[in-house]
Amino acid sequence: MMTAQSTSVGRHIKVTGAGIAGVVSCLPERQVSNAHFEAQFGESAVKDVVKMIGVENRYWTDDKTSTRDLCLKAGQRLLTQLNWLPESVDALIFVSQTPDYRLPATACALQADLGLSSACIAFDVNLGCSGYPYALWLGMTMVQTGAARRVLLAVGDTISKIVDPTDRSTALLFGDAGTVTAIEQASGQSASFVLGTDGRGACNLIVPKGAFKNHSQSGDPRLLDKASDCLYMDGGEIFNFTLKAVPALVNETIELSGVAADRHDGFLFHQANMFMLKHLTKKAKLPAEKAPINIDQYGNTSCASIPLLMTTCLQDQLRNGSMQLGLFGFGVGYSWAGASLFVGPLKCVETIKC
């Protein structure tokens, strides 16, 4: 049974009868170290930026590879490892802010790529940093209500394609990744979600040239000298929003779950930047050893960052045992989402290259 209520932080929702069966992340083959940026910005400037964001390496796609391609490889691997027949998948949700096209929905193309049944529900969700907990809520709700028995969540971004190479604040920060998570019926399991939005912050993390509206012509002075088809980020505003919203999100998610913080085995935060992650962990009074960080190796991979943490930092634990996890996504929108759920042992949890 699903229950819900509202608070100032967000919508509280509990979902039962669904769980994660497996997760696969797919990274591009091309690894980009910080040395790549020294010719553009200078060695000293690169070191100054890295002190804050903490990124040493990231993976970028080539011109021909899209988020859909990364998710396709991850999905194929996951179906094989789980021994799921394509026709047994009832729904496919593609969560990304870097789709293949304005239309059609990338989920439709992925449905065909994966050989899923024509009876498969397929649709896109345009979310970034908060996208993974939102996807889990959607997929698990579909299973709980009986709309689907098995759901694939394709969650990923290729932000490298929309950063301005002359903008230090974004050019060094982001990496690319695609992930697919399998959701299926799981009697006795429950998951708790806190979901919220504040669209007043939309202009602080934005690609100004939209599908049918060009925000760079809105008179916002911050955008006057910015490339309208590239990502713009007001780092100060994003930082202030995060410090205000996320500690409360953590507290309410844990409280809603009914599982005390010290009984959680891990807290997976969207990998925004190193300084922010360490500050959030401390402010939320969580033990640092339970809040893994991999932004140094992969960069900020947007909505893929939480499942990528699962398939890198927690691979052995989730393959061989079970964990009570808190998952926290926050950023572009503004949008935020928290989840607390029991995960593992998983039949498949791994990271592959494409």
Rank of each mutant, 00 (worst) to 15 (best):
D167N: 14
T145P: 01
L110C: 12
T170I: 07
S160P: 10
V163E: 02
A112D: 15
L173H: 06
D198I: 05
L127I: 15
A182S: 13
C120T: 15
I183P: 01
L110I: 11
N126I: 08
S192V: 06
V151A: 04
A177R: 01
A191Q: 12
I159T: 13
E184G: 08
L152V: 10
M140T: 05
G146I: 12
A148Q: 04
A122E: 10
L152A: 08
V151G: 02
A191F: 11
M142P: 09
Q144D: 13
D113N: 14
T166Q: 15
R150C: 12
F123M: 12
N126G: 08
Q144F: 05
S130E: 10
G115W: 11
Q111S: 11
G131A: 12
S190M: 10
K161W: 12
V180P: 00
L153T: 09
R149S: 15
S190R: 09
D157C: 04
L136W: 05
P165S: 12
G199E: 14
G139S: 10
Q111E: 12
A112C: 11
V194I: 14
G139H: 06
P133Y: 03
D198R: 07
Q185H: 13
C108E: 06
G128K: 00
L172K: 03
Q144W: 07
A177D: 01
F193P: 00
D176R: 04
D198V: 06
L116M: 13
A135K: 02
S187N: 09
I183E: 02
I159N: 01
D176L: 05
D167K: 11
T170E: 05
V143L: 10
D157A: 03
Q185C: 06
L110W: 05
L152D: 02
Q189T: 14
Q185K: 13
L136E: 04
A122M: 09
A154Q: 03
Q111W: 05
V194S: 02
V143K: 04
Q111T: 08
G131D: 12
T158M: 03
I121P: 00
R149K: 15
V194R: 00
M142F: 12
G196T: 05
A135P: 07
D124A: 08
I183D: 02
F193R: 00
P165G: 11
R149L: 08
D167E: 15
T166F: 07
G178D: 04
L153H: 08
L152W: 06
D164N: 15
M140Q: 15
E184S: 14
D167Q: 12
W137R: 07
K161D: 10
Y134T: 01
V125M: 15
T197M: 11
G199T: 11
C108R: 03
G178I: 03
G131F: 06
D113C: 13
Q144N: 14
Q111A: 08
I121K: 11
V151R: 02
C120N: 11
T141E: 13
A109R: 09
N126H: 14
I162S: 05
Q111I: 04
K161F: 10
A112N: 12
T145N: 12
G128E: 00
Q144L: 07
D157N: 10
S130W: 07
L114K: 04
L153S: 07
D124R: 04
Y132H: 06
A171I: 07
A171Y: 04
A135N: 06
A182V: 06
I183Q: 02
C129Q: 04
C129A: 11
Y132W: 11
